[in-house]
Amino acid sequence: MGQNGAGKTTLVKHFNGLLKPSKGRVLIDGIDTRHVSVATLARKVGFVFQNPDHQLFSETVEDEVSFALKNFGFDEKTISERVEKVLNILDLTHYRKSSPFMLSGGERKRVALASVLSWDPKILILDEPTIGQDSYQKERLRQFIMQLNQQGKTVIIVTHDVEFVTECEPRIILMKNGRIIADGDAREILTDPNLVSEASLVLPEITQVFMRLNDYGFPRNVIGVYEAKRLILERLSGGFMR
């Protein structure tokens, strides 16, 4: 997370070799990115760009999703199996033969995601996945990301959507002016007013509430709604009968 221009996208472009370090080195799964091509690294690292329109070009959704599989030289049978599977997971099966250009913004974003998930990369990078998504789409995306993560995938999200992040509770790396200024878990980073304002973010809503309740003996580092409710109920339970 961090301000626009802090260097987030530039940093993650080093993870699949689109950019190579001019000094130092980047190891992906033990491989030095300077010594292999983007295509080789891409097998391990899937990168979904912010704007789906920067990648969609095929006549049908199906073709779009199989594009990478063909580039990586999978055989026909595997390709059709993989396409089938990923379209199913992302609820795109009925658009199989549609032109990606005819779909809505949210759907195009899903096709772009499908076209990367198709080759089952170990590491998944998502650049600003929540921009232009409504809350229903965001919630679906969040569940999907959590599921991938539970399946053992490494997920890296570039975002400044604070409320989205409080619901995922990931490890957060904060950047500013090309440097990492903090690295820790969501609760620790997002409830630190100095760090948050340095990175041009805002405190999560619930944290803002609890900052003001601090005088009443509540902790400051609260980010979730359910946690907030529990803390308030505990405090009240002394004189409150339910």
């Binding site: 409504d134 809350s135 229903y136 789409q137 965001k138 919630e139 409320e163 409080t166 999560p204 809503e205 619930i206 509430v209 709604v225 359910y226 907030a228 409710k229 308030i232 109920l233 009240l236 409150f240 339910r242």
Partner: peptide, 21 residues
């Protein structure tokens, strides 16, 4: 119902109301 993102503070309000607060 229609996927409008209700602010967290409102959700907190609604959750507390469920418990009679």
């Amino acid at each position: 119902m229609v996927g409008v993102g209700i602010p967290k503070v409102v959700r907190l309000y609604l959750l507390l109301r469920e418990d009679g607060i």
